[in-house]
Amino acid sequence: MTMTVHVDIVSAEKEIYSGLAEMVFASAELGEVGIAPRHAPFITKLTPGEVRVKVTETEQQSFYVSGGLLEVQPHVVTVLADTAIRAKDIDEAAALDAKARAEESLSDKSGKIDYAKAQAELAEAIMQLRTLEKLRKRGM
């Protein structure tokens, strides 16, 4: 029987693969790596590319990952896959965007009607009216 290693491929949103394999190939930052069972503990960044899992001599499965991390221990290989391409400038832009939106909503506080707040007040007023009506009906 050939040696196998347990492989888990997970992303933040779901589990992608879990099972035994004879070998795992992935595109690491410093070049493609192939991990066989009993590999020394190893951790590396992945670049966008394919992760191939050799389940048996004849069966292979491949997954596309847009980056992430690969962790290797003698009997477990874990791929922490990113769900989207992560680059410093994309993240930066998203951060600025989140900030800008907060500033925007703070600045138009006076001008625009705060709908959610108005709705809450309205709901409260309706409830009060309804209770009053009920009380009045009971009283009669």
Binding site: A12, A84, A94, A95, L96, A98, K99, R101, S105
Partner: peptide, 23 residues
């Protein structure tokens, strides 16, 4: 308030949050 993300779908993606978390 230093950052905000609104109007996400019921099935949000991680990317929707990365900006906010990075802040």
């Amino acid at each position: 308030i230093v950052g905000q993300v609104t109007r996400l779908s019921d099935m949000p993606h991680l990317e929707d949050l990365t900006g906010l978390i990075k802040l």
